[in-house]
Write a protein that binds this DNA or RNA. Structure first.
Lengths: 182, 182
DNA sequence: ATAAACATGTAACATGTTACATGATTAT
DNA sequence: ATAATCATGTAACATGTTACATGTTTAT
């Protein structure tokens, strides 16, 4: 009897991997590529997390690797095990808990009284950043042709960034024409 | 001549401290209390960061601590030095760079095809979470009476969470009445 | 009396980024 | 030829959370 650490605590990043493998078997490199085209905007992951995590999930029996070299180039394609699929469903059924934001632009605006003249350029920079994100997301929409829930979440990303860019524009206008705003 | 590490690299969390001290001198405990009432929604900080950071900023000459015990209870009140104020302004003048989001609800929605029945409850849980945040922010607005940029940013928090709660409601409705939505 | 709030700090742990190291294959 | 992409991994570093440890003062 092989010991499988089925009860190990999984960090949310592990579920990014389980989730992507529920689409289709793939390599760590593929995982990174897909993350950068999708979850990155609300849950990023680097190689430094992905490869060690693949090892841990494999040791825990939640995924299985198969060697599929391309010529002399080694390649390990991972797929979900039955246990892995069960753990993914379990996680999907539970309430989401983590919500964290780190927005340096908002932080600068918050402290802008220490240098009021810079508030306008902070707002403009934040607006531009959101516009750029929108562009990248639209490109992904056009080239990646996501479907189903992936498309729904992509549209969330686009609309949220539109809202944020808009808010920055409105706030900048209010700075120009002070007080009369409610 | 005392060596001051004026050129040390500051993490954004250091600027949370410098920013709050630009309002008025205060203790580490005060900093934590204010962070929890304000920046926490877009830049959190724990005691485990704050106290060591106060030490580092003090060693670097950007802030100065003064002992102000209350009876036998020790208390160190920090204030910005001239250099500290200059560093804060410098940071405010530079473009914001960090924008990071970790939204477990969005992640679960993204992978909902592995358990479609749970998408609705994920949306509902995310909506509730945003509603709760709105409540807390409104309470802070009423009790804390923030002004100026702090008020502007607080309203951003309220409106952004309203947008997000709304989006969840709309997406849940679209799940019920599929396809006809564009 | 005792619970809550004030006050400071550390240690262990968890998470995550960046740079580095290495090499194969494919497209230009 | 050579640059881009495919492919896997590690080590050093940075950041951040949680639990623990300690003690005082104020409010109930």
């Amino acid at each position: 009897m092989i010991y499988l650490a089925l009860d190990m605590d999984l960090a949310a990043t592990a579920y990014v991997i389980l989730g992507l493998l529920s689409w289709r078997p793939m390599s760590g490199y593929d995982v990174k590529g897909l993350v950068d085209q999708s979850t990155r905007f609300f849950w990023a992951a680097s190689y430094g997390q992905i490869y060690p995590e693949l090892r841990r999930l494999s040791d825990a029996g939640l995924i299985e690797g198969e060697e599929r070299p391309q010529g002399k180039r080694r390649r390990t394609v991972y797929s979900l095990t039955r246990e892995g699929r069960a753990r993914l469903r379990e996680w999907l059924d539970a309430e989401p808990e983590v919500y964290e934001l780190r927005d340096e632009g908002l932080l600068k605006l918050f402290f802008a009284s220490a240098s009021p003249a810079t508030a306008a350029s902070t707002l403009e920079a934040k607006r531009r950043a959101h516009e750029q994100t929108i562009e990248r997301l639209r490109e992904i929409e056009a080239t990646g042709k996501p479907e189903g829930f992936a498309l729904i979440v992509l549209r969330y990303g686009i609309e949220m960034n539109e809202w944020m860019a808009d808010w920055c524009a409105r706030a900048a206008a209010d700075l120009d024409a002070p007080e009369r705003a409610a």
